[in-house]
């Protein structure tokens, strides 16, 4: 078994990998070309679906940005020498890391008002912003754990060496420890990014106009079973096209870091 994979392995694996990138789009293309009326309907709906997918990307980018900033701070605070700081942060991380994403999206959607009053002006508080917050909360909890793990994985001798060179605790963290953490936490951070991107589909359940919602709209408008199938395959292909490269890259980075 090992012998055969050794000899023909790399080339064959490379082929299957490149095949994986195009498999789903290829299915869609061939099907749309063999049934032209279906293909035409699909082309008509593609802009609508694309506008939905833009929303997915927007939500995931914003949620990850906020989640990373807050999470990195929380991760450092989790290691703070003061219990008063540490315990609330640890509790926050534990609760929101264990909470289902869907529950948090529901929570932010139903708890926050639909508009906010700032100095007498009514500002709308759209659902998609609530979904961003709903996903930024678990993202921040995960990033906090990733950061904490990365900081703890740096050998203590480095802290001691920094101290010996006259760095303060904060300076050691800022200039010596954190730069190394960035490298170590990159693969899990990318895993999180792809999992948050996939979780944006949950926003459709609270009525945010994103890809899954758009596909459901389209299939109820067209009312053709074959269109429904191809619409959902398009949804899968879109998410796959976004998440599969990320997961490939993550695995490559992991392997390289493990080897180093």
């Amino acid at each position: 078994m090992t012998a055969t994979t050794m000899t023909s392995g790399p080339k064959k694996q490379h082929l299957t990998r490149s095949l994986a990138f195009v498999a789903l789009p290829l299915v869609i293309l061939i099907w749309a070309l063999t049934d032209l009326s279906l293909g035409r309907t699909l082309v008509e709906w593609i802009p609508y679906l694309a506008s939905g997918f833009m929303m997915n990307i927007l939500i995931s980018l914003l949620a990850m940005t906020f989640g990373t900033v807050i999470g990195a701070i929380f991760g450092i605070l989790e290691l703070a020498p003061y219990r008063l700081v540490r315990y609330p942060v640890v509790a926050y991380v534990q609760i929101f890391r264990n909470a289902p994403h869907l529950v948090l999206i529901f929570a932010t959607t139903y708890i926050f008002p639909f508009e906010i009053v700032i100095a007498g002006n009514y500002l709308p508080f759209p659902d998609w912003v609530k979904a961003v917050i709903g996903l930024a909360i678990p993202a921040s909890a995960y990033v906090a754990e990733i950061t904490r793990g990365a900081i703890q994985s740096i050998p203590t001798t480095q802290w001691e060496a920094a101290q010996g060179l006259g760095f303060s605790r904060w300076q050691a963290l800022r200039y010596i420890i954190l730069p190394q953490c960035v490298r170590r936490s990159l693969p899990p951070w990318m895993n999180l990014f792809s999992s948050i991107t996939m979780a944006t589909a949950l926003a459709s359940l609270v009525g945010v106009h994103e890809l899954l919602h758009a596909a459901t709209d389209a299939s109820t408008a067209v009312r053709r079973i074959d269109f429904t199938i191809i619409a959902y395959i398009v949804v899968m292909a879109a998410f796959f096209a976004l998440c599969y490269p990320i997961s490939r890259l993550t695995r490559r980075l992991e392997r390289r870091f493990n080897a180093a």
């Binding site: 996939m198 979780a199 944006t200 429904t228 959902y232 796959f240 997961s247």
Partner: peptide
């Protein structure tokens, strides 16, 4: 495919199709 597409989409696909 399972790892890289949202579970919700898989569920809707299975249930509707």
């Amino acid at each position: 495919i399972t790892r890289n597409t949202p579970t919700l989409v898989q569920l809707m696909f299975s249930f509707l199709v």
